[in-house]
Design a protein around this nucleic acid. Structure first.
Lengths: 118, 118
DNA sequence: CCAATGTATCGACGTCCGTAGATATGTCAA
DNA sequence: TTGACATATCTACGGACGTCGATACATTGG
């Protein structure tokens, strides 16, 4: 199944968002974007996927290798990957018949900033 | 409406959870707890509430002062506060007829740790 | 006590979400 | 070109979620 890991170079169109929640009051548009990103993390299967991607050698995992460890069907895994991708938390790159996924470090960092206290 | 801010001293029973997702693969129980916390942040109204609490003088806000800025009914605000409280992200303290809410810094810090990269 | 105020709970409604089977699309090997 | 494999999309279903009006509960002042 698993081919040698390949780098994923694309960066997402969903830009990093917002200063810390504790720094200034958030407006509705910012809240909408952030809520979608946090909601994407608000599912145990998707957290497991993020964990699998982040701990993988090269930070990249073939979609086919996410079905077994999550214990979900292939369509369900594909759905979760789309949710994460739409939120800008992961990117994908097709290599042959496979699609390799990786986390977007900048997006996770942006969320960490949002949660920062003073 | 707003009385002078009072310190909120209680810490939640929902303990901080887990090492970074990038450090080790997460198990199902941990994923469940974390997912509930991230899901609690996955709503624009709740993000606004967190922001209002975190930016307030003394870090404490009366529940009555969350209705107008969120633009939601009093029962809806109360519902969102319960979601945040059940997730361990905020604490509450009744003072007279009012209930004062505050964020739990340790919980937000724990989530920041979970999102940390290497 | 009783009335007023602040908060939480209940009940209901419409919508969104997680899930998987069936199927379409894309890619490669022969 | 054909068949096999990998992934995404479609469809449907059950349950969870956000919302608010009505109402119960809690607290204080008179």
């Amino acid at each position: 199944m698993s081919l040698p890991q390949l780098p994923v170079l694309e960066q997402p169109e969903v830009v990093a968002c917002c200063s810390p929640l504790a720094a200034s009051e958030i407006n509705d548009a910012q809240a909408e974007v952030l809520a979608r990103q946090f909601a994407a993390l608000g599912d145990p299967v998707r957290l497991r996927i993020i964990s699998l991607l982040a701990t993988a050698d090269g930070g990249t995992v073939c979609a086919c290798d996410l079905v077994e460890p999550t214990g979900r069907s292939q369509p369900t895994v594909s759905h979760h990957l789309k949710v994460l991708s739409d939120a800008g938390l992961v990117t994908s790159r097709r290599v042959g018949r496979n699609v390799w996924y990786a986390v977007v470090p900048a997006s996770l960092d942006a969320l960490r900033t949002v949660l920062q206290q003073h």
